[in-house]
Amino acid sequence: MTGPHTIGETVRVSAGLPPGHVRTPLFLRGRTGVGIRHFGDFPNPERLAYGLSGLPKLHLYQVLFRMDEAWADEAGKEGVEDGAYAPGDTVAADIYETWLEPL
């Protein structure tokens, strides 16, 4: 069982800004990537952080983003030109199902 998403599926990270303890980094919110691994399911860390059980468990995925997608609207920053990253470079992050929307 791989949960609501499949490997190779294009997904978007929710752009939400919920208060409290959050495990999805701000720089990836609203970004589009591809699910490359499914790790199984884990207690929800955003509930565990408040002494709760974290149940039901959430499916956890590794999502791959292109660097130029992650930093697309950074004004005045040209990553490829200034040697920050190369055109094919990527960033992968572990993201729980509640943060992912199908495209």
Binding site: G20, H21, P45, E46, L48, A49, Y50, G51, G54
Partner: peptide, 12 residues
């Protein structure tokens, strides 16, 4: 006494 996540929340 606490979960790792509670530790993170406290530091934040």
């Amino acid at each position: 006494f606490w979960a790792t996540d509670e530790n993170r929340r406290t530091i934040e």
